[in-house]
Design a protein around this nucleic acid. Sequence first.
DNA 1: CGCCACATTGAAGGCAGTCAAAGGTGGTGG
DNA 2: CCACCACCTTTGACTGCCTTCAATGTGGCG
Lengths: 237, 237
Amino acid sequence: MELYSLLKKCPLFAGLDNEQLKQLLKIAQHKNYSKGELLFAEGQSAKGFYLTLCGKIKIYKLSPEGKEQILHIVSPGEPFAEVALFSGISSYPAFAETLTNSEVFYFPKSEFVDLLKNNPQLSLNMLATMSQFLRRFNHMIERLSLQDVSARLAQFLIQEIPLGNNQQHPLITLTMTKTQLASQLGTVSETLSRTLKKFKQEGIIAVNGKCITILDQEALRNLIGFDTKYVDFIHDC
Amino acid sequence: MELYSLLKKCPLFAGLDNEQLKQLLKIAQHKNYSKGELLFAEGQSAKGFYLTLCGKIKIYKLSPEGKEQILHIVSPGEPFAEVALFSGISSYPAFAETLTNSEVFYFPKSEFVDLLKNNPQLSLNMLATMSQFLRRFNHMIERLSLQDVSARLAQFLIQEIPLGNNQQHPLITLTMTKTQLASQLGTVSETLSRTLKKFKQEGIIAVNGKCITILDQEALRNLIGFDTKYVDFIHDC
DNA sequence: CGCCACATTGAAGGCAGTCAAAGGTGGTGG
DNA sequence: CCACCACCTTTGACTGCCTTCAATGTGGCG
């Protein structure tokens, strides 16, 4: 059954034996969503968490005026809403909406916590996963509070350079629309468009639709400014 | 020995029996710091995490230009830098500096992880603690990206109303300088000063040094705007 | 008393958001 | 294959919030 191999590939369940995976499958609910569906809303009572099997799911917040801040775009193999599990009677802290047709596993809270109690390895994995999130949020706070849009975009671009790519002019292909990228960077599409244009004029990048070629990595790193950033990048990818 | 009772009171170690606490004490290193000392810097290699015993410790980030964003001010009983434990070879994601003379426990990474492996309850506590952090960060991102300074200040004030206080005009006493509060809110002291003044003129609050009286809760909540916020507040306090 | 850190106030300037409109792109159905 | 439509992207003009800089006010403490 191919669901086993799906679970095994997911970092959250790495190192678990088949018996444990079987137990997980027993409590997992397989769900299908079509593009544009809302999985849950912010504030809604949370009784479990999700694991993405296929598709892309947008996790975001809304301001009172309707502005959208994307926290994360979830890809297959990644869990989301884990935070719901461990803080008493809890509610979802953001919205979740499918960007494409998607399949997910839904793990009800109480059953999953029972598994955790008898399964130290699973707990450790869970902790590792949540650490990743904390680091991601940490970066996001850094970006939003300490850097202007140019720096945020520069950081994003550096982050997106494919690993092991030692070419002089790495190529990045966006997996989302520029409007969505703008929202992730805490800005709006107009400003992103202007910033990209500025980078182009300064010879830092070349843009062709969703393809961006980095012409001057040095300049990008200077825009970011943080020395300590480099260290973190290694662990976040 | 009074260290036992200290550990027991800490949410992170709630529900552990004396034997387990004894093991924790065995690996804990007791450290003293005087006011203004740097415990660790961002990017520095992380080999363990901390638990505050007494004093106040500021966790913050620095922008290239030297602007400070306070992530959190840690109080006794609270752990910090736990994120360092679970992401492979890791580095501290922020700076930590004492605001007062402080005592802490330092738990070396490898020894602590060994304890976790044989101790499901401790793992669950750890997960709960990290969930709290995720929620806190979540709010911070919301504040920084979606709200203006007035809304951020309003949210802070509402949050700081002492629990169980049903008085019509609750009194808040700041535990930090206004400059530090400004930094937590992602702004500067001048702007905070102006915003406080505006609130005063609108009859929303009264300010006397570090004492702030809330005169119009309704107005503050309207400034925040988020309906869903209310739900979260309950769980975060 | 005088120092120092913090707080307040004013003036000026910039970054980025909003509004509006035009240009581009992809997908659907005729 | 083309036409149409919806959505995304780009550009310009304008506005405003917030930061910066500079100066003055205030309080605690040796």
